[in-house]
Simulated assay, not measured.
Amino acid sequence: MPAPLPTGPLVTRDTLAAGLAELGVRPGETLLVHSSLSSLGWVNGGPISVVAALLDVLGPDGTLVVPAQSGDLSDPALWGDPPVPNAWWETIRATRPGYDPATTPTRGVGIVPETVRTWPGARRSAHPQTSFAALGRRAAEVVAVHARDCRLGEHSPLAALERLDARVLLLGTGYDTCTCFHLAEYRIPSPLVAVGRPGPAGWETPTEVSITSERFDELGHDFERDRPADRPVVRGMIGAAGARLFPLPDAVAYAERWLEVHRPRTEEL
């Protein structure tokens, strides 16, 4: 039996660029993108066309930023997708290759970030688990500081993006993917946890702020609802994907207030 034909819509680099421009993405801006390729429809050229369209709209003075996380550089005792036998844990810890910004692949963030990571001229930040990759005029500035004991806080690219008045584009994804909300977690009382991972000198367990995306969908809903009329979350469709565009500093400031009230956290998760 022949495979069924795709239902589309058929999406191209040009139609993506037109949709992004219509949504309000501006030449020269700095844009943090969370994306789902499969949500867009049938994309001719796949992730290459998506990245190219974003760069087309941002232009030579713009900067494209994506999460380039490598969550598999973590303690195998916590793995669940898929888990590994307990008897393997110590060997995995002893032999797991450490982080290399040039070669460590992304994991769990989709194919578009992996495409950005490997794009000519891409820069990547130094954190072994929660790095960001960037392309464009301010790429080096965005990823310059990323302390090994600061996953998504003041010494990470998120803080640089806040200073640069970046905007966030959710392209076929929900607020549960919105990494900038984590910056707010570093600014409210939060527990600390030991984070196991391979390091330059073997297995290490640095202390980090505990982070979680729990209730981020609810937080995002309230953020969108409470926006002033002259600064709304801009919503639209690009291909078959729902898209949202909003200022990153506004989202972080709102999340700080919201999390203190709705998700008090006084003990280790």
Rank of each mutant, 00 (worst) to 15 (best):
E141W: 07
A194H: 07
L183V: 05
R124F: 03
P198W: 10
S39F: 06
P232E: 15
G80L: 14
P2G: 05
D165E: 03
A253H: 08
Q69W: 15
A133N: 06
R244F: 02
G41R: 04
A184Q: 00
E267L: 11
P85F: 05
E224T: 11
T106H: 01
R265Q: 13
S38R: 14
S74R: 10
E268V: 15
M237E: 06
C150S: 15
G174W: 10
G59E: 13
P82G: 12
D75M: 09
A184E: 00
L161P: 03
L78M: 09
E162Q: 13
P82V: 11
R167W: 11
T205A: 02
G41S: 10
A102P: 01
F132A: 06
V57D: 08
D226C: 08
S190I: 03
L171Y: 04
F246R: 01
W42A: 14
I238Q: 10
D61C: 08
W88E: 15
T63P: 06
Q129N: 14
I92D: 09
E185T: 02
W89R: 12
Y186P: 00
V65D: 13
G172Y: 01
P157L: 01
S131H: 00
L171P: 03
Q129Y: 14
V168T: 07
R151E: 15
S190T: 09
P206C: 13
L164W: 11
S38K: 12
W42G: 03
V51W: 07
E204C: 02
P232W: 14
A52R: 03
T104Y: 15
Y175M: 08
S35Q: 10
V109E: 01
T95F: 09
G174V: 12
H34I: 06
A243T: 13
P228G: 04
P97V: 08
L161Q: 05
V193Y: 08
V252R: 04
D222W: 07
G59S: 08
W42K: 03
V233W: 11
T130H: 11
T173H: 08
A201K: 09
P249T: 05
V65T: 08
T95K: 12
T115P: 04
R138Y: 04
D250F: 06
G242M: 04
R235M: 03
S125L: 03
P249W: 08
R231E: 15
Q129L: 12
A243K: 07
P2R: 11
L10Y: 01
P60S: 13
R225Q: 10
L64F: 13
L161K: 05
A94N: 12
V168G: 06
V195P: 00
W203V: 12
A77P: 07
E162H: 12
G24K: 06
R197F: 09
P249V: 05
E224S: 11
D250L: 10
R265G: 09
G239Y: 00
V33R: 00
